[in-house]
Design a protein around this nucleic acid. Sequence first.
DNA 1: GTGAAAGCGCTAACAT
DNA 2: ATGTTAGCGCTTTCAC
Lengths: 330, 330
Amino acid sequence: MKKTAPTLHDVAKAAGVSIATVSKYLNGTQRFSPAVEANIDATVKTLGYRSNELARSMITGATKTIGVAILDINNPHFTSVVKGANRVAIDNGYTLLLVDTEENQGREMQLLDALSRRVDGMIISSRMPESDIKTVVDFGKPIVFFGRLESLRLPTVGSDVYRGAYMLTQHLVTQGHRHIAYLGFSKSRWDAERLRGMLDCLQQHDLPLARFDAQLPFASEGERMCSFVMLGRERPDALICYNDLMAIGFMKEAQALGFQIPQDLSVAGFDNIQYGEYVSPSLTSVDLKSQHMGEVAMRKMLDTLAGKETDHYTMLEPQVVLRQSTMKRQ
Amino acid sequence: MKKTAPTLHDVAKAAGVSIATVSKYLNGTQRFSPAVEANIDATVKTLGYRSNELARSMITGATKTIGVAILDINNPHFTSVVKGANRVAIDNGYTLLLVDTEENQGREMQLLDALSRRVDGMIISSRMPESDIKTVVDFGKPIVFFGRLESLRLPTVGSDVYRGAYMLTQHLVTQGHRHIAYLGFSKSRWDAERLRGMLDCLQQHDLPLARFDAQLPFASEGERMCSFVMLGRERPDALICYNDLMAIGFMKEAQALGFQIPQDLSVAGFDNIQYGEYVSPSLTSVDLKSQHMGEVAMRKMLDTLAGKETDHYTMLEPQVVLRQSTMKRQ
DNA sequence: GTGAAAGCGCTAACAT
DNA sequence: ATGTTAGCGCTTTCAC
């Protein structure tokens, strides 16, 4: 029950060797005579010595910690991203410092500022404008960013949502839908790409797109927007939502309003979250490979830290996953 | 574009004052003459000085970081816990170091070991035996634990699952169910309490309980166990699952097998995860107040760090949330 | 093979 | 009101 934890100094003294010897042996920097090594091992054990990571980090300049900033930990898409990033991190001896910015612009910058001081690098998902991202870059730590950037040249990773949106739309058109609507979320930096994919596809078929915009990417918002979309002058026969969460909320409310899905309306989302399988009808979705995104981002981070050059933009290939919420129209 | 970040020393020199003056002023430890303060402010700005948290932490002994270890970040219960903990942490100037042990005993100890060296305290959710928890306590950092402990006297927080299970069972019995089954998860330290609550209630009504045990607390496991439960000799008329995830999986598979819920079987779970509202039928559940658990845990941690004594066990009151997956039997 | 000593950037007595 | 100085626990040349 000692007041203060044993230090390298204590071990050295107790083992009758120098502090440098202990340090080098423990770090595997150098080998020593068997007698000395055994002695150190024993002393470390009896004293219960554990290195002070802080002191070491101060010298080596590395904390072995990667900061991960996400928008909302309650969103399954982000938990999958974190899961992927975490796996790769752990396999490489790194730990995750998590920051949940709660879809809340206000404190984001100060959170990132604080974060940047305690990590070796940051993996960031954010809705900040590029000018703000520039500020974050100036915090001086390596950054991997989710989503494509215009002016900044940063390592980024994303899913090809344009392709995903195009494919999904193409499928709906092929299945006979003629009145397709998009319940988007224009605050997201991924929204425009989805929209572009849909528009390009529909234009080829000379079909229109009805557009709606949500304020939050949540299920509750999908519910809220439902009557607005379904009880207007022109009811769509297919709806694509910005993400699965919104789609799930929308479907529930649509059913409450008396509509049958997919008979009255086909619904689809993005992300392919796990719960899409368990709602009724099960949800058709564009799988954006969330977990893989996290893995790739962390691998890029680690490569950057190791001084390797990484390609700047990595784009994962999405996959349309068909389920019961969409059907063929005759 | 300097190679190395400016230090306190640089600021002091550039501002023509001593290093201590800068330190004290920046930390608000002491006030100085307006001239000096303005001068320091200006220099800090032009140099872009940002304190090295590591060096500071080494001296103050505080990292302003709390480690949070959870079993699975893909489980909504835990994301809510983290959300709650994170809110309180941020409001108090702390950051979360997250560790996802992935329901994987093997690396858990080494992860916690590593974690303990970089944080001021740890909030832990784990299935470790108490002997192992003792080891973690010996890492020397304050700990707040989720769940009641037998021998160890640690600050802990939990939900009164015994009461929750009792209430839920009571409700089912009142609604006319006579063949109640429990699909448990005996590896969890919360399983026994649930079971005890059900048993105590059923005993009073002189009713039996059929028991099944899952290997993992996932939806997929609920699906897997379904045929085993539903196609045996004695089919239950009500099923309580260890958690909502399992219940959701179970319901899906039961419906696939041709059963109607709740007509053929009432189903209920624990946690009251968000998705329970969106599956069909919507899921009756015992709300364990996940987010509140996280908040309370973090508050206890902060109190402990501040030297305040905290009560050792805090038990939140659960609430039965009735939805469509349970119904009255005549 | 092993050890002495110089810091890493900062805080906190203790001076002045 | 401001400065001097002694470390915090560790890594890392550079000597012996």
